[in-house]
């Protein structure tokens, strides 16, 4: 059949991935510190976007709670940073976010569509204001100091989190749970009556994605030295991953990765070159991307591939 569309294909070969990781892991040896810091910033967005896509990609539940999980990680780092060694702090950041996501998931994942989106956004704002209130009432401060970690360490920690996230995303996607998540995104009721425990599967996946956001928050906190709720829970951490994932396309794992990387680099270039107009230019690029690349970079790659055949 000519109309038969074969959709099994290798998203990107293992070789390229391996070379890419080697280059990334040796980078601090031969580039300037500025580039390492810039790449850390890029990696941060890549991890948040990728972990966002683990849950929201297949299920099509658009979550705007990323900032909540990221921010919790940041605060854990600020509170425990001086008491515990770094790896423990990062694990704690991830774990607390994981547990929080389980609770949020149990409440909100019964909502669908628009209601879910707004609820998750509300939850992350609620957490931000609760912490603000707590700090003002009981600790008597607004912000906190965070212990500083040198930028190469930050970079390597982020790289490790990225590799683990990628591995987790790959495993979930390839397993039967990946298929089940996609079936939830398509026909939740049909998914339920073929025997998928939809609520528990959604909740656990949501929590797994929150784990990586929390861990990322915990390490990124050390880059800022000073944090307050407005920095840690900035709504940008909720919105950017969604935009980046849409820009990249969510069908394949490389979509959110490259979407986030290109977006983050673009932001940096625009900020440095056009400090006054950067948001304006950013908006125009975003609109153009949505108009002309409705399926993101993944869609573009598909189109080129098809034309070649």
């Amino acid at each position: 059949m000519e109309s038969a569309r074969v959709i099994y294909r290798k998203p990107f070969s293992l070789g390229i991935l391996f070379i890419g990781l080697i280059v990334l892991s040796t980078l601090p040896l031969y580039v300037q510190p500025y580039l390492v810091i810039l790449l850390s910033f890029v990696l941060m967005y890549v991890i948040i976007t990728l972990s966002w896509a683990i849950f929201s990609g297949p299920t099509r539940y658009i979550s705007l709670a990323s900032a909540a999980f990221f921010g919790i990680g940041v605060y854990i780092s600020a509170i425990l940073g001086e008491l515990w060694p770094l790896p423990l702090v990062i694990a704690a950041g991830g774990l607390i976010s994981f547990i929080l996501a389980l609770f949020i998931g149990l409440i909100t994942l019964r909502l669908r569509g628009m209601y879910f989106i707004i609820f998750t956004f509300g939850v992350s704002e609620l957490i931000r204001h609760s912490i603000l209130w707590w700090e003002a009432k009981f600790t008597g401060t607004v912000g906190r100091w965070v212990i500083v970690v040198d930028h190469t360490t930050v970079y390597f920690v982020l790289l490790i989190i990225f590799i683990i996230t990628l591995f987790a995303a790959y495993l979930i996607k390839r397993s039967k749970f990946g298929l089940a998540l996609r079936s939830i995104g398509e026909q939740e009721e049909a998914a339920a009556h073929i025997g998928i425990g939809v609520t528990s599967l959604k909740t656990i996946t949501f929590a797994i994605s929150a784990f990586f956001m929390g861990a990322t928050g915990a390490i990124m906190a050390t880059r800022w030295t000073y944090i307050d709720p407005a920095i840690a829970f900035s709504p940008l951490f909720s919105f950017m991953p969604v935009l980046m994932a849409i820009f990249g396309g969510v069908g394949q794992l490389y979509g959110p990765i490259f979407g986030a990387a290109i977006f983050a680099l673009l932001e940096e270039v625009l900020i440095t070159k056009f400090p006054y107009y950067y948001m304006l230019l950013f908006g125009i690029i975003l609109i153009a991307a949505i108009l002309f690349l409705p399926n993101g970079l993944v869609g573009l790659v598909d189109k080129i591939r098809k034309r070649r055949q």
Binding site: K176, A180, S183, E186, A191, I194, G195
Partner: peptide, 19 residues
């Protein structure tokens, strides 16, 4: 029937064996 339209026929069937 409510099949999962964005999945292949095979994937649809495999989902049936999810339990």
């Amino acid at each position: 029937g409510k099949p999962f339209t964005e999945m292949t026929v095979r994937e649809n069937l495999e989902m049936g064996a999810y339990p």
